[in-house]
């Protein structure tokens, strides 16, 4: 559903800076009395894996839902390729080229794999569901991702294991030519082999020029795939920068306390200590 423009398309600003694919400025979101996000900035460039880390309840899932059109922010601005956008619904997000793999996977247990992968974007022929062409496309995508453990792509998702369900959710995102793929804790429920498969897939997507935003609080995964790191603490963005600026201890400090006494590099100071006061 996304446009056929080249993935590496960027906008060059007057100062000569390259405008990133996605930029959040001062984004805030509250649910009644719960302030889930406060004044969050985030940059997600094309062709790179940005890891979003943070403790449980830090607001990681809420943040990606503001981008995915599930919970539009109530403060701040989202820029897409340098232009301010209002993403009001999942359809808006899909139209921009944003695909999301949710933490809860958002699969319908009663539907089969093909039906889930095309949910909301079914192919039609003469006004009726074109099951044949959808099944072929789903099969090709699963094969290209080496997802071969499912017995039949016509079995209901209820009959799949946790790893297979995750694979279906990832394949669902990969089915659509997108500019940004967001994954919320894609490896949280997986064993070692399946985790390796998903991380390979993440790198594979970035290598194709897609921007990938991965949520994880598994530091092994974060350092294995991320080009950039962003760390949320109690709804505040406390650190953001290239992954090479961080080491394990610094990330743990930011995740748990929102600040770090040690610094390793200049790119890191953005927002340091903001949640402290």
């Amino acid at each position: 559903m996304s446009s056929g423009q080249p993935l590496s398309e960027t906008v060059v600003l007057a100062e000569g800076n390259v405008e990133p694919l996605l930029r959040l400025r001062g984004v805030g979101k509250s649910f009644g009395p719960v302030q889930a996000l406060t004044d969050v900035d985030l940059t997600v460039p094309l062709g790179q894996v940005t890891a979003l880390a943070g403790d449980n309840g830090a607001g990681k899932s809420v943040l990606i839902k503001t981008v995915a059109g599930i919970h539009p922010p109530d403060a701040g601005q989202i820029y897409w390729q340098g232009n301010p956008v209002h993403i009001r619904s999942p359809r808006d997000a899909a139209a921009l080229g944003i695909e999301t793999v949710y933490q809860d996977l958002a699969l319908c247990d009663n539907l089969d794999i093909v039906q889930n992968m095309f949910l909301g974007r079914e192919r039609l022929r003469r006004g009726l569901l074109d099951e044949d062409s959808m099944e072929k496309a789903a099969k090709d995508t699963l094969l290209s991702l080496s997802v071969t453990t499912v017995r039949s792509i016509r079995q209901p998702v209820a009959s799949l294991s946790g790893g297979q369900r995750q694979a279906v959710a990832v394949a669902k995102a990969a089915l659509w030519t997108s500019k940004l793929v967001i994954m919320d804790e894609p490896t949280a429920a997986l064993g070692v082999a399946a985790t390796g498969m998903v991380l390979d897939l993440v790198r594979h997507l970035a290598a194709q020029g897609v921007a990938v935003l991965v949520i994880s609080h598994n530091l092994n995964d974060v350092f294995a795939v991320a080009d950039r790191l962003a760390i949320l603490h109690l709804g505040h963005m406390v650190a953001e920068g290239p992954a090479s600026d961080f080491d394990r201890q610094i990330v743990v400090d930011f995740m748990t306390t929102g600040r770090s006494s040690r610094r390793s590099g200049d790119g890191l100071v953005d927002g340091v200590g903001r949640s402290g006061g």
Partner: peptide, 9 residues
């Protein structure tokens, strides 16, 4: 579900 995942996969 993830506990059993390694078997199934």
């Amino acid at each position: 579900a993830g506990v059993h995942d390694q078997h199934a996969a």
